[in-house]
């Protein structure tokens, strides 16, 4: 039935087109329903599909790789004891798997990193997008992005040797040991600045010029225009930048492994040392735990928790963006 109609329409079109001007130049006359095959397009489509499939399969693979050993872990240790226990001692004879100490250390380093990177990153973004002349922006932004490429082990050593040992202990005479979540968090914050700045700068530059003009034409100054018009209009991009910053802070391993400490104790203040979730994984993974042992599975339980936290952060931010979004 459908094919039938199409066929008759095709016919009608063809007859109609013969009545039209038959100029030899220009596009050849062709029925709209001819369904011209474009082999190049098909190949491109296939390639894109393949790329998407690989990405999805990898994600599923990671989840399975995390889940299987983690399930083994939770067969031995109740989920409740894991999530809410306040003693982390997986290697001891009277082993205990309360993850709270690791979580507190991660919270401290992440919070400190965000306190540093969000204001400075957003400030840099506003400066670049709203204040800098185009030429300046074109040179400054790549330099900023270069900073994001410094290996994290370098940042880690900087935190340990310079910030903690020299600045905190020698210069400021602070009451702190060889490690602190503050030193690790501060340096991690510096590391994340370019990420936050670059992505939010993209979002703010994408805000149409006409909105800025509208604001200036009312007698607003540059700061008001930046903060009250451009910034809210770019909010979803800015939020994405902050979320990526949080994800990087939660997941950052090298800096905290080097400078935050390696004793899993509940962290009560910024000058204390503490082992973060990633710090524990890095330490334990380098150790000699047997595949399939409970100690080995512990790694995956913590890994799964990290994964879940990142997911939750993403989820919350999507909700927030939906609520406060000012789409232009």
């Amino acid at each position: 039935m459908l094919a039938n109609t199409t066929a008759s329409v095709t016919e009608a079109t063809t007859t109609a087109s013969t009545g039209g001007p038959t100029t030899p130049s220009g596009h050849p006359q062709r029925s709209l329903f001819a369904g011209r095959a474009r082999p190049g397009e098909a190949v491109i489509k296939l390639g894109l599909r393949l790329a998407a499939t690989v990405a999805i399969l990898t994600t599923i693979g990671i989840i399975i790789a995390l889940l299987v050993p983690a399930i083994g872990f939770f067969r031995e240790v109740p989920v409740f004891d894991f999530l809410f226990g306040d003693r982390w001692a997986p290697r001891f004879a009277d082993a205990s798997f309360g993850v709270i100490p690791l979580v507190t250390a991660t919270l401290w380093t992440t919070a400190i990193a965000l306190i540093v990177s969000v204001p400075l990153g957003l400030g840099a973004a506003i400066l670049l997008s709203e204040y800098a002349r185009p030429g300046v922006r074109k040179t400054l932004k790549p330099i900023l992005e270069l900073l994001a490429g410094v290996p994290t082990v370098v940042y880690g050593l900087f935190a340990l040797q310079f910030i903690q040992a020299t600045v905190f202990r020698d210069w400021l005479q602070l009451d702190t040991g060889a490690f602190s979540v503050l030193a690790a968090g501060l340096v991690m914050g510096i590391m994340i600045i370019p990420t936050v700045a670059s992505i939010s700068e993209d979002a703010m530059s994408a805000v149409p010029m006409s909105l800025r003009q509208g604001s200036f034409a009312l007698g607003a100054n540059r700061m008001q225009t930046s903060l009250r018009v451009v910034f809210p209009a770019a909010l979803s991009g800015v939020m994405a930048a902050v979320v990526l910053g949080i994800s990087r802070a939660v997941g950052e391993t090298m800096i905290v492994a080097i400078a935050a400490g390696n004793q899993a104790r509940i962290v009560g203040g910024p000058l204390e040392q503490g082992q973060t979730m990633t710090g524990f994984i890095a330490n334990a993974a380098l150790g000699d735990s047997r595949v399939g042992s409970l100690e080995y599975d512990t790694l995956y339980a913590v890994g799964l928790l990290l994964f879940a936290i990142t997911l939750i952060v993403n989820f919350i931010s999507i909700r927030l963006v939906r609520r406060f979004r000012q789409a232009y």
């Binding site: 149409p208 006409s210 909105l211 003009q213 509208g214 604001s215 200036f216 034409a217 009312l218 007698g219 607003a220 100054n221 008001q224 009250r228 018009v229 809210p232 209009a233 000012q326 789409a327 232009y328």
Partner: peptide
């Protein structure tokens, strides 16, 4: 610019509420 206002070719309301669009100028 406050004393000499401007209306543009393409309407350019802020992506805010109607109320906030009007209140913006007096506020800033």
């Amino acid at each position: 610019r406050r004393r000499i206002g401007m209306v543009f070719q393409k309407p350019n309301p802020f992506p805010k509420s109607i109320y906030d669009n009007i209140a913006y100028g007096p506020r800033v």
